[in-house]
Design a binder for these strands. Structure first.
Lengths: 141, 141
DNA sequence: GATAATATAGTCGTGTGCGATTAAATCGCA
DNA sequence: TGCGATTTAATCGCACACGACTATATTATC
């Protein structure tokens, strides 16, 4: 049995993810951020000073992806990367003042995206929960 | 207002897409295919001999992504790339015999993935339709 | 029939993702 | 205390994605 692309839930996810990033693109361009960089900063705005590993568990990325991304954020002056004194294996990521200031400049983004979805907050919340449940099943949880 | 990652539907999509690709990975490794390559072949199994542009409209990718991907599929002997005689701007992508044979070797994949989702076919169908609707809204349809 | 506009693939540069591996620090346990 | 196992980032190589641009072919307009 072979399904066609429109029948496949994997393709629905794949193409919806790309469409979502396409909506974010112009909004993030104004801040000079890529989409994964925005996700990492969102985690840091919620909780500053996290290790690479802790950030990775939140955004679901490994150090092989995060390390170069974080170096780029450091080059742009949004975060600092410092070895932990107590455990030198770990690297602490801390927001700089410009990095913190981005939060205010990004505050309008969720409403812009919500409007583009054409769905109500309730519908989106339900859909988000279903997608999250699917993801957790796939991850073997 | 700033949402946390678990609240964001964009992150639900993003992380679910990665989890889905993680499930496909070992299944596709057996065939020597990447996930986007599998999507392109799915389109060709449904309808052989398509132009680069037609394939791109189905999998939602541009020629800058498709051309190198299709060259790799050609190198592996799964497709041929030939300029159209009537319109030399277009390149026709055609399955080879090994490329067609892959369809049978991939036939078990949908059932394997379905099982990993832990959801019923009905639930998945409903979820797929909701995600597709969201995608089409985001694309401005 | 010449030429501007459009369509189609392709090229290039940047930034992810990720499997495999490495280097260094810490931990566990005899 | 010493030493193997584990943890943590980082490195490397490959394959997407995609914006910007290019080259060529076709179409439209006069």
């Amino acid at each position: 049995m072979t399904l066609t692309l429109p029948d496949m839930i994997c393709f629905a996810l794949y193409s919806a993810t790309h469409a979502m990033q396409h909506v974010y693109k112009p909004l993030l361009d104004d801040l000079g951020l890529t989409y994964p960089q925005y996700l990492v900063l969102t985690a840091l705005w919620e909780q500053d000073r996290q290790t690479v590993g802790a950030l990775g568990r939140q955004v679901q990325l490994e150090s092989n992806t995060l390390t170069p991304l974080l170096k780029r954020l450091e080059e742009r002056g949004f975060v600092t990367r410092t070895r932990d004194d107590r455990d030198e294996r770990q690297v602490n990521i801390t927001l700089t003042e410009p990095g913190r200031a981005l939060q205010a400049r990004a505050a309008h983004i969720p409403a812009c995206v919500l409007e583009k979805t054409g769905l109500s907050v309730d519908d989106l919340t339900r859909l988000r929960d279903q997608i999250t449940t699917l993801r957790d099943h796939l991850r073997g949880a």
